[in-house]
């Protein structure tokens, strides 16, 4: 669906989506990198379980939610890839609750 116009001469960074290693140009959003890899859906909705993926690419629609480095419900279009980033599908709702362990420090 999408064709890369080239990675330029920049050094690529390595990110991991589920179990797949992806070499991505620095500065790109996680959503752009997933789409360029042909990954069209990155989560299932909590309500109907339907697959969803990046849509607006500008932080409005909340369709592109993923888990990044253990933090749930991250907007893939609003996060920039970083070397070693661990990206997972967001299955349903965030697992925050009375008996869940404290989430990782959000002040990263």
């Amino acid at each position: 669906m999408f064709t890369k116009v080239g990675d330029g001469d920049r050094d690529l960074v390595k990110v991991i989506f589920e179990d797949k290693e992806i070499m991505a140009p620095p500065g790109q959003s996680v959503a752009a990198v997933l789409l360029a890899e042909g990954i069209r859906s990155c989560r299932e909705t909590p309500v109907s379980g339907e697959p969803r993926g990046p849509y607006c690419m500008m932080g409005i629609c909340f369709e592109c939610l993923v888990v990044i480095d253990g933090e749930p419900n991250q907007q893939a279009c609003m996060r920039t890839v970083r070397e070693g980033m661990l990206i997972k599908r967001q299955h349903g709702v965030a697992q925050i609750g009375p008996d869940a362990k404290a989430e990782s420090d959000p002040a990263e």
């Binding site: 909590p46 419900n73 965030a94 925050i96």
Partner: peptide
């Protein structure tokens, strides 16, 4: 908030959770 795991079945005056989370 973002949708989170269902934890609050009973609404309170200042905090309630929707069926969607």
């Amino acid at each position: 908030s973002e949708k989170v795991r269902s934890f609050l079945r009973i609404p309170t005056l200042h905090v309630r959770q929707t069926t969607e989370g």
